[in-house]
Nucleic acid binder design. Structure first.
Length: 472
RNA sequence: GGCCCCGUCGUCUAGCCUGGUCCAGGACGCCAGAUUUUCAAUCUGGUAACGCGGGUUCGAAUCCCGCCGGGGCCA
């Protein structure tokens, strides 16, 4: 155990957008680093050239930035341990492989890929586990001929470690097989590059998905071969889809930027992801990022997988939305307004936001919730009773004729009308509501009328009245 | 197929290490009620779980064993 501030890294492969599962791993790394006053490093593992996608890295960085997961070292940030792209560190891998080659811990293997494939198939056919058998490999040849560099597992060394999440882990050395470190084209495998970089970047805690649990023993042998100190390992359980398999793009798992575009708040998504597989032991459900940083601890990370439940995300997001000050909400809402709101004044939009704030689950709902504040309804739901409209709307227009259109005055007059007409409040208000909003559900009636103003309110009531008369 | 990991309400989880206070607590969802001009928000109540079987023990969600189920890695 080291005394210095921890150094952690998030090391995605830029092979596509990053969905919420990967994001949570990044979040745990970040929370831990910030909680401990440590260093959060971003490194791109782009050694699988065939799978690298051009804009993926940029999209991943944009996602992290949007969420506020700032990294201290990495692309765009720099740092003393760069470069932070594995594709730019090839020489280093070759040099380190060379070292182990000289020590006999790595050997050259000229076995043609098709031979290896045949062995694999044979094993499968005989239903026995496939394991690379050194004696069957072609280990002599000319260094000029294409070959791979393979790590020689020490079968007598049973790797063991104390996983921060999963506890004591160990594996028999005899179960491990010699793995490729450098491919014939000189590029490193994930297994090799990963270990070399974590060491060179002085990573103290390797916090990553639990799919690496089973390859960790191999890594441990590499560390030992190099004589390097091993970092702490913190494997985190996967995020599952509704079908209880690891969340993937096949589930339609969204990326952070899509949540951004739907109008989710970064703080809400962080709140949600942090509590997927971690909790602070209290019954608190809603956290600000600062609170999460304060309370985060590796000890309280779960062992079991957690299903991604978007209903819960909506609830959390609604909560964060309601907690926003009006100014903040106005700022966040920019870009989510319906087209028709373009000409509207800022004051008016503020007024509208006040009315819908407690109804919003995410900002993308803004158009459907507010369109009628900017556009006259063109059609009306069938719940609009035309007979009632024909009968009552003239009286409504009369009643509000001299109103100053303050909420209080509108309320007083309309409630008075209810008494006069001797109808149910809900019945009368329903006709008015539908007439001015085109909807059966809307913000409070007086607030809405007040916001729309006298002229618009009258015009809409008049329109419905005309229609009602036409029908009759 | 081999190896590894996991298993508390539909979902997120507390509790498990240090057995009794747990006929299992909180939250989302759902249902009902209150409020009420609709919707929402809010409040109140309800719904619902220790995978199964053994064992240890006066007593097990908690400890041990087996099984079953799910997931991951290798290929």
């Amino acid at each position: 155990m080291r005394e210095q501030a921890p150094r952690v890294r998030f090391a995605p492969s830029p092979t596509g957008y990053m969905h919420v599962g990967g994001l949570r791993t990044a979040l745990f790394n970040w929370l831990f680093a910030r909680n401990q006053g440590g260093v959060f490093i971003l490194r791109f593992e782009d050694t699988d050239q065939a799978r690298v996608i051009e804009d993926a890295a940029a999209s991943i960085m944009d996602s992290l930035q949007w969420l506020g997961l700032d990294w201290d070292e990495g692309p765009r940030a720099g740092g003393a341990h760069g470069p932070y792209w594995q594709s730019q560190r090839l020489e280093s891998y070759q040099k380190h492989a060379e070292t182990l080659l000289e020590q006999g811990r790595i050997y050259r293997d000229w076995t043609p890929p098709q031979d290896l494939e045949a062995m694999r198939k044979a094993a499968q056919k005989e239903k026995r586990p496939f394991k690379v058998d050194r004696s069957q490999l072609k280990t002599d040849g000319s260094p000029d001929e294409p070959h791979v560099l393979r790590f020689a597992i020490d079968q007598s060394h049973d790797p063991a470690w104390d996983d921060v999440v999963y506890g004591r882990q160990s594996r028999a050395g005899s179960e491990l097989d010699d793995f490729v470190c450098l491919k014939s084209d000189g590029w490193p495998t994930y297994n090799f590059a990963n270990v070399v970089d974590d060491h060179l970047m002085d990573i103290s805690h390797v916090l990553r998905g639990d799919e690496f649990l089973s390859s960790t023993p191999k890594f441990l042998q590499l560390y030992a071969a190099f004589g390097w100190q091993t970092p702490s390992f913190v494997h985190v359980p996967p995020v599952h889809g509704p079908d209880k398999t690891k969340l993937s793009k096949r589930h339609g798992a969204l990326g952070a930027l899509e949540y951004r575009d739907w109008g989710y708040l970064p703080g809400a998504l962080i709140n949600f992801l942090a509590t997927l597989g971690w909790n602070d032991g209290t019954t608190q459900e809603i956290f600000t990022p600062a609170e999460l940083i304060n309370r985060f601890s590796l000890e309280r990370i779960q062992k079991s997988p957690a299903v991604f439940d978007d209903g819960r995300l909506d609830w959390i997001n609604g909560h964060h939305l309601r907690a926003l000050t009006l100014d903040e909400l106005v700022r966040r809402a920019e870009g989510f307004w319906p087209q028709s709101a373009r000409e509207a004044s800022m004051d008016y939009k503020r007024q509208v936001l006040t009315l819908v704030q407690e109804r919003l689950k995410y900002l993308g709902e803004l158009p459907e919730l507010t369109w009628f504040f900017f556009t006259d309804p063109a059609e009306y739901p069938e719940q609009l009773d035309m007979d009632n409209a024909r009968q009552w709307l003239p009286r409504v227009l009369e009643t509000i004729e001299s109103s100053d259109f303050s909420e209080a005055d509108l309320e007083e007059r309309l409630r008075g009308l209810v008494a006069e007409l001797d109808v149910k409040t809900g019945e009368l208000f329903k006709v008015i509501r539908i007439s001015i909003t085109g909807q059966t559900a809307a913000p409070g009636l007086f607030e809405t009328m007040h916001a729309l103003g006298s002229e618009t309110t009258r015009r809409r009531l008049q329109t419905v009245l005309s229609r009602a008369r036409e029908v009759a």
